[in-house]
Write a protein that binds this DNA or RNA. Structure first.
Length: 464
DNA sequence: TGTCCACTGGAAGGGAGGGCTT
DNA sequence: AAGCCCTCCCTTCCAGTGGACA
């Protein structure tokens, strides 16, 4: 009998998906429902690039999942497409002119021209014209500042996007920043044309590295001779602009685009649209899409969340071996997504942060009602001793606690207990069992996962 | 009204680790 | 190998703070 591989059974299994990628957040569909206004506005600004003029700098604002990135990328693709089309049109015109020229036997140069034409050596004759006109170079460089979050990295990223071979690329560290800037300027100038630089999640960049980079980028045109550049900043935090230098603020905000959240009905349209390409016919119960939309609309109209819900619900239905996605699957998907995100965040924490989180968990397990930084630090110190690890200072631990707060694993707020001092009050925002389940996976923490802190501390803390 | 507690959180800077040029 | 640069993680220092209490 033929032996079956472990994947064969699943590979042959029936699936509700036609194309799962269509439901992924980074998929750019051919149509973006309810974003016509924004697309037109953006296109009306960027069309300048096709005329070889510098488009205005643009600031785009909208909550997560309102289509900012999708629209920007979509318009970018269209811009590139149009630039290619125009360039082809122009090339054809040149060929036609050449042919006419040859046919007219203009001034006895026909043979020479024909010869050149046969060898496709246009540049010999139309060199300058070709260089300047045939290709309307439009470069659209997209950078997500969540990962590329320092001045140096943004500059190298842009500079490297003009370089094709690996060995010519700028290194990830090592060069002085002004040297990288010079190289970037040179690369842009060599490439020529109009360069649009998109900085997605620009607030992350400014928060971490200040606005020097924006100042430099919005003023790069004065250093360019053969090219023009403009910047599109995308953010979901409108307030971040308040912290910018006034000069940066005014030049980045030459044009502003606001992306309002989708309402439940608009989300439904988006889901219907995508599901037609993503899922088999009749794979969805009629109430599924309205439910996904309603759930996502509750959370500031986040289309990404709506798509995730539908995708995960379909995956769960697939695993159930049913041929229909039901409301039950959507509800399951909702809790699965929430759990998965938290688990993933905890899993990727650095060891010291995990240790701080564990000491918070341990305090909660010991029924501490009002948990403060001091108590967390005390248990943390004990854990470090047990594990023979370096103990960080309380100052550093305060920062780690704030980071855990930002990640949404805990809630902390500063309160004053009068003479008892002023400190952070720490509460969990995720069930302790869920956190512990993930922490238990870590080999490092295994020896102390059920650690009991010294009694004195618990007595002291419950007195507060 | 002033004092005092237990911190908070900003600023500055050290140093290890990555990489470059000379 | 030496000298330089950038990033990341961390320490040290310290002014500032909300509110209970005397």
């Amino acid at each position: 009998m033929e032996k079956k591989g472990i994947f064969d059974e699943f590979l042959g299994a029936k699936t509700l998906f036609k194309n799962k990628e269509v439901l992924r957040p980074n998929y750019i569909p051919e149509e973006l429902p309810h974003r016509r206004t924004q697309i037109n506005h953006l296109a009306s600004i960027l069309v300048a690039a096709l005329r070889g003029e510098t488009p205005s700098n643009i600031f785009i604002y909208g909550k997560t999942g309102t289509g900012k990135t999708a629209v920007t990328k979509y318009v970018g693709d269209e811009l590139n497409k149009k630039a290619r089309e125009l360039s082809e049109e122009y090339e054809n015109k040149i060929i036609k002119t050449t042919l006419d020229y040859i046919n007219d036997d203009n001034g006895g140069r026909a043979n020479y021209l024909e010869n050149a034409f046969n060898h496709l050596d246009f540049e010999k004759f139309f060199g300058d014209e070709l260089k300047n006109n045939i290709k309307i170079p439009v470069h659209y460089i997209y950078i997500n500042c969540q990962h590329v979050d320092t001045q140096y990295r943004v500059l190298t990223h842009i500079a490297n996007s003009f370089i094709e071979t690996w060995d010519e690329r700028l290194p990830l560290t090592g060069w002085p920043t002004d040297e990288v800037y010079n190289r970037l300027r040179q690369n842009i100038d060599d490439a020529g044309g109009v360069i649009t630089i998109i900085l997605d999640e620009i607030d992350k960049l400014v928060e971490k590295s200040g606005d020097d980079i924006l100042y430099n980028l919005t003023r790069i045109n004065s250093d360019l001779h053969n090219a023009k550049a403009n910047v599109i900043g995308i953010s979901n935090d409108l307030k971040f602009k308040e912290f910018l230098d006034a000069r940066v603020k005014s030049s980045l905000g030459e044009e502003e685009l606001i992306f309002p959240p989708y309402d439940a009905e608009q989300l439904q349209d988006i889901l219907y649209d995508r599901s037609q390409n993503a899922l088999q016919e009749k794979a969805i119960e009629s109430s599924v899409i309205p439910l996904c939309s309603a759930l996502a609309a509750q959370e500031h109209g986040d289309a990404r969340r709506a798509l995730d819900l539908l995708r995960v619900a379909a995956e769960l239905a697939d695993r159930d071996n049913t041929n229909r996605i039901t409301e039950k699957h959507v509800r399951k998907a909702l809790s699965k997504i929430e759990q998965d995100t938290v688990a993933e965040v905890i899993r990727t924490l650095p060891p010291q942060s995990k240790l701080v989180l564990l000491s918070i968990v341990i305090n909660h397990e010991n029924d501490v009602v009002k948990l403060t930084t001091g108590m967390v630090f005390d248990v943390y110190k004990e854990l470090c001793e047990k594990l023979h690890m370096d103990t960080l200072t309380q100052r550093r631990v305060t920062d780690l606690i704030s980071e855990l707060d930002m990640l949404g694993i805990i809630n902390s707020r500063v309160v004053s207990f009068g003479r008892g001092g002023r400190t952070k009050l720490i509460e969990r925002s995720v069930p302790v069992e869920n956190i512990k389940e993930v922490l238990e996976e870590s080999d490092l923490l295994k020896p102390v996962i059920d650690y009991k802190p010294m009694i004195s501390q618990i007595v002291q803390s419950t007195l507060l």
